[in-house]
Lab assay of single mutants.
Amino acid sequence: WLKDDEATHCRQCEKEFSISRRKHHCRNCGHIFCNTCSSNELALPSYPKPVRVCDSCHTL
């Protein structure tokens, strides 16, 4: 799980985070992405409801 202060850019699109481009953790891989690159939800065994995942984890 990557800490918020360790990420300054989206792991996928590499756009810089700002007040309007917020950080979101993928609940599967733990990396930090922008909203555009992590707008999917997936049912994971460790969560009772579908949770936010990055595009890469969603296509696995």
Rank of each mutant, 00 (worst) to 15 (best):
S38F: 02
N35G: 15
A43S: 08
S18M: 07
R27S: 12
I19S: 11
K15S: 10
P50C: 09
K3R: 02
R27N: 12
Q12R: 05
C34I: 01
N28Q: 08
T36Q: 15
K23G: 11
Q12P: 00
N40F: 04
T59Y: 08
L44P: 05
H25M: 13
K3S: 03
A43N: 12
H9K: 10
N28A: 11
T36F: 15
S39M: 14
L60E: 12
P48H: 07
G30R: 04
I32A: 09
C13F: 01
L44I: 10
S38A: 14
H25K: 12
L60Y: 04
E16N: 11
A7S: 13
C37N: 06
H31P: 01
H9D: 05
T8N: 06
R22P: 05
K15G: 10
E41D: 08
L44F: 07
N28V: 06
C29R: 01
R27V: 06
F33G: 03
H31R: 09
E6K: 14
D4C: 00
L42Y: 08
R27W: 09
S56H: 15
S38E: 00
N35D: 15
K15F: 06
N35T: 15
G30W: 07
H25I: 09
K3V: 02
C10E: 02
C26T: 01
N35S: 15
C10S: 00
K49W: 05
I19K: 13
A43K: 10
I19H: 11
G30Q: 05
S20E: 14
F33K: 02
D5A: 07
E41R: 08
C37V: 02
S18R: 06
S18K: 10
E41Q: 11
P45W: 06
G30K: 00
Y47D: 12
E6Q: 07
R22Q: 09
A43D: 12
T36I: 13
L60D: 15
L2M: 10
P45I: 08
N35L: 15
L2C: 05
R21C: 00
T59R: 15
I19G: 13
C29I: 00
N35V: 15
K23Y: 02
K15P: 00
C10Y: 01
P50E: 10
G30E: 06
C34H: 03
W1G: 14
H9T: 07
S39Q: 13
S18T: 13
E14G: 12
A43C: 09
R21H: 04
S38G: 10
N40A: 08
L44E: 04
I19D: 11
T8R: 12
F17G: 01
D5H: 04
L2Y: 13
C34D: 02
S38M: 04
L60I: 13
K49E: 10
A7I: 12
D5V: 05
L60C: 02
D4A: 03
S56L: 14
S56T: 15
P45Y: 04
C37W: 02
L42H: 14
S20W: 12
L2Q: 11
L42T: 10
G30H: 04
L60P: 04
N35C: 15
V51P: 04
K23I: 07
D4F: 07
R22S: 05
S20G: 14
C26R: 01
S18V: 06
S46F: 12
K49G: 10
T59E: 12
C37A: 05
G30I: 02
I19E: 15
H58W: 12
C34E: 02
Q12E: 07
H24N: 06
T59I: 11
T36G: 15
S18I: 09
R11V: 08
A43I: 12
R27Q: 14
C13K: 00
C37D: 04
K15R: 11
L60K: 12
V51G: 03
P48D: 11
H25T: 09
S46R: 14
Q12A: 08
C37I: 01
K23A: 08
C10F: 01
R21K: 08
S38W: 06
H58E: 10
P45L: 08
K15H: 10
A43R: 11
C29N: 00
R22K: 08
K23N: 03
A7E: 12
P50A: 13
R21T: 14
E16K: 04
K49N: 12
T8D: 10
H25E: 11
E16A: 06
C26P: 03
C54G: 01
W1E: 09
H9E: 04
P50L: 10
K49A: 05
E41F: 06
C37M: 03
F33L: 03
K23D: 05
N35W: 13
K15C: 07
H25P: 10
C26K: 02
P50S: 06
P45G: 07
P45F: 07
R11W: 15
E6R: 05
L2W: 05
E6M: 05
R22Y: 05
N28C: 13
R11C: 15
K15T: 08
H31W: 11
H9I: 07
C34V: 03
T8P: 08
C34Q: 03
T8A: 07
S46Y: 07
H31S: 07
T36L: 15
H25C: 08
R27D: 13
S46M: 13
C37K: 02
S18E: 08
S38C: 11
F33D: 02
L44N: 04
Q12M: 06
K49H: 09
C37S: 03
C26V: 00
A43W: 04
C13S: 00
P45H: 11
S20M: 10
C26F: 00
K23Q: 06
L42R: 15
A7D: 11
L42Q: 15
G30T: 01
H24L: 03
P48M: 05
L44K: 04
R27T: 13
R22I: 09
H31C: 03
W1M: 15
N35E: 15
C29M: 00
R11K: 15
K3Y: 03
L42A: 14
A7G: 10
I32E: 13
L42N: 05
R22E: 12
E16T: 05
D5G: 04
C37Y: 02
S39G: 14
K49S: 10
C57F: 01
S20A: 13
E16F: 06
P45C: 05
